[in-house]
Write a protein that binds this DNA or RNA. Structure first.
Lengths: 246, 246
DNA sequence: GCGTGCCTTTGATCTGGGTCAAGGAAAGTG
DNA sequence: CACTTTCCTTGACCCAGATCAAAGGCACGC
């Protein structure tokens, strides 16, 4: 998808930049991190890691979209995390992953061998601090998602997801979106359904309903236009302040 | 409820013991923490904190049960966390809370003023490390709950909750439960419903169904007996290994 | 003992979203 | 260009769980 979009330089000298630490890292700290980092790419659709298998590396997403899913044998699947560039995979202090990680688009990771990384952490307070912040942000996001899964209607769920996508699309260039915007859904209907706790049929139906109501426009399979962001926001079921954490 | 059960000495010299740091803290580190700690109690039903209001303190639960909930104006409410003794409330680096915190039973908190606590954190690597661990555990728990909310049937949800309760009941004395056991539900049907993304009627119906199927016994309103834990586990919809993180 | 509330159970009915089934549409492939 | 394959949409029908409504307990104060 956009593997090539983010240059090496964007990932920067410090490999877990973006939401991560590096703005606060000292040069020598970066040196240490750089010594154990390496890049790895996965084509769209490929499994990056499977629940329960020992985890060799931790990584930061440089480009592409990956998903974190949890499922039961009978096939029911729930996405529990959407990983966009700057998100972190894996966790210090755990040697197995609790979830399946899958590349949705072509994905490039900036990896660190877990053991050395953990050892390094002890000397890198900035990184540890940033990891805590990120974990807490993810926790908030997960909890917001719990409200969605437990209490929201199908239409509200779709609207919430689109809102989330818009918000997360803003970030890379730091540009603030106007009232109207256009997003490329980085995921299939199936992934959307798994994220929202719905079926693909319901996702499809609600999308067309939102289109018919003039809340969104649909261009092809993946592009959504949003003529009035406020109108979409009003469909999410959230409080005005738009509590959803991205 | 059991306010008196946990003695001051159990909370120990280090106030965020239990799941928290203190086993690894040095004596002088404990000293520092103790200087800014104080206890606070809330009767059952009382609101401990409201979403959005500035957060003065962080705290560790010493006794009782509290809930973390997120809700929308129209009354829909989703519980996003069940706080039992040893759990932590609040987060360093955020000055407002994202959720409502409510005492379900009588609750005793071990509080720290947030600002001094945050400053202290800089010098207490053990505590920071432990906070990260706890955040990651909570994240895993939240994600497991997402699977429940997104994909499980009402019966599976009830069974999962009971299983969770059993597992969390074990901890305080470290005693391993036998195959059969008895738990006191610390929460009302309404709280269960809000936790599970169901209505109280459905919760009630599924509980009686499980009773009629011999999976559980119901004694009064709050006590549940589980003659065969394996049978209950089989109803949760989870993999055999019982992946649920407590 | 007798209300008065609160929580819980049970019943009857309704409905949002699931399930099953049948077509499109776009992209690749030989 | 026909021929899969993959993804998406649409329709018809169904059912788990929501909603609406009515009783039980049980604990409390008077």
């Amino acid at each position: 998808m956009n593997t090539a979009k983010i240059e090496f330089s964007e990932c920067g000298d410090c490999p877990i930049r973006h939401r991560a630490v590096c703005s606060r890292c000292e040069t020598d700290e970066l040196e240490q991190l750089n010594k154990i980092k390496f890049y790895k790419s996965y084509p769209a659709g490929q499994t990056i890691a499977i629940r329960g298998e020992p985890l060799q590396n931790v990584a930061s997403i440089v480009a592409g979209t990956a998903t974190l899913t949890r499922s039961i044998e009978d096939g029911r699947t729930q996405m529990v995390g959407l990983l966009l560039p700057s998100d972190f995979i894996g966790r210090p202090g755990r040697d197995t992953l609790q979830y399946d990680v899958t590349a949705v688009s072509d994905v490039t990771l900036c990896c660190f061998q877990r053991k050395p990384f953990e050892k390094l952490l002890e000397d890198l307070p900035h990184v540890r601090e940033r990891l805590l912040e990120m974990a807490l942000d993810e926790l908030d996001a997960a909890r917001d998602w719990m409200l969605l899964l437990g209490r929201k209607t199908a239409r509200e769920r779709i609207a919430s997801l689109l809102t989330l996508m818009v918000k997360r699309t803003i970030r890379p260039d730091g540009e603030v979106m106007g009232n109207s915007s256009r997003i490329e859904l980085p995921i299939t209907r199936e992934a959307m359904a798994n994220y929202l706790g719905l079926t693909i049929e319901t996702v499809s139906r609600q999308l067309t309903k939102l289109k018919n109501d003039g809340i969104i426009g649909i261009e092809g399979k993946r592009a959504i236009t949003i003529p009035d962001l406020g109108a979409l926001l009003a469909e999410t079921g959230d409080d005005e302040d738009g509590g959803m954490i991205v």
